[in-house]
């Protein structure tokens, strides 16, 4: 396990408050692209606003308020462009929102994907988390709404969670700006390769599907050596996703 998880305090020490500058919507010539994904109503826009200093509309309402927002911040002289994706429950269906989110993670190739999850409903949120981890291996889980979780007497063992998922986990209460410095530090570490993730891959797949997937991944990897998400492409091919088929044909995927 190469993942280095630092406890919250450790990271605080690392965090260089001086090095942070919120850039608002001025995102010219950035060094890294960061995507914000997650279920609806988990606080993505709140995290986005906390990071960029912008005031995107946030609403306590699962449904799209805005389609896609961009902003930026600068940390230790590196510029990060942040993209707030529409909230979705899954990336497996075909609704407009899901396609937008999926396309950005897959084709936009963000340097880091921040997955915002509701700490009160982790199991439900993991559905999306596990799907994203099949697509990208540069991700961090932002365990948001920790204040509510505490009020509801829910406690989460972040270390074990990080180990199980194979990516860093940062607990936050974005509304109160708690945990945001740690999140920035982690984003920067992943972008710069200081943290290397080894993401969880879906395990409990039935045998007949697993066999089919293995056959396909072997073929895909033969054609595109070193591709990080061959298994996910196999899943999509088995579902008959025309967009992925076309992307495969045009070579957009690599």
């Amino acid at each position: 396990m190469e993942t280095k998880i630092k406890s919250a305090c450790e990271t605080c020490a690392h965090f260089n408050a001086e090095g942070l500058k919120k850039l608002g919507i001025h995102t010219d010539d950035f060094d890294f692209v960061v995507a914000l994904a997650g279920n609806p109503n988990t606080g993505k826009s709140t995290v986005f606003n906390a990071l960029t200093g912008l005031r995107q509309h946030t609403g306590n309402w699962p449904g799209k308020t805005v389609t896609r927002a961009e902003g930026g911040f600068e940390y230790n002289t590196q510029k990060f462009k942040l993209v707030d994706l529409p909230g979705t429950y899954s990336l497996l269906s075909t609704s407009e929102d899901e396609e937008a989110a999926r396309d950005f993670i897959l084709f936009g190739k963000p340097n880091v994907t921040v997955i915002v999850a509701d700490a009160n409903r982790l199991e439900r949120n993991l559905n999306l988390v596990l799907q994203i981890l099949e697509i990208t291996d540069k991700a961090v889980l932002c365990l948001n709404l920790m204040d509510e979780a505490k009020r509801n007497h829910i406690s989460i063992d972040e270390r074990t969670l990080a180990r199980d998922l194979g990516i860093p986990v940062v607990p936050t209460s974005a509304r109160f700006n708690k945990g945001i410095p740690e999140l920035i530090q982690t984003i920067s570490d992943i972008a710069n390769g200081t943290i290397v993730c080894k993401p969880h891959r879906i395990k409990s797949v039935p045998d007949n599907i697993d066999r089919a997937v293995k056959k396909l991944t072997t073929e895909i990897e033969k054609e595109f050596p070193g591709i990080p998400n061959s298994r996910w492409i196999a899943f999509r091919l088995l579902e008959g996703d025309t967009q992925i088929i076309n992307a495969l044909k045009s070579g957009e995927l690599v």
Partner: peptide, 11 residues
């Protein structure tokens, strides 16, 4: 179709 997928996605 779509409604089945939604139900599954919602858990």
């Amino acid at each position: 179709g779509e409604s089945r997928r939604r139900l599954l996605d919602l858990g």
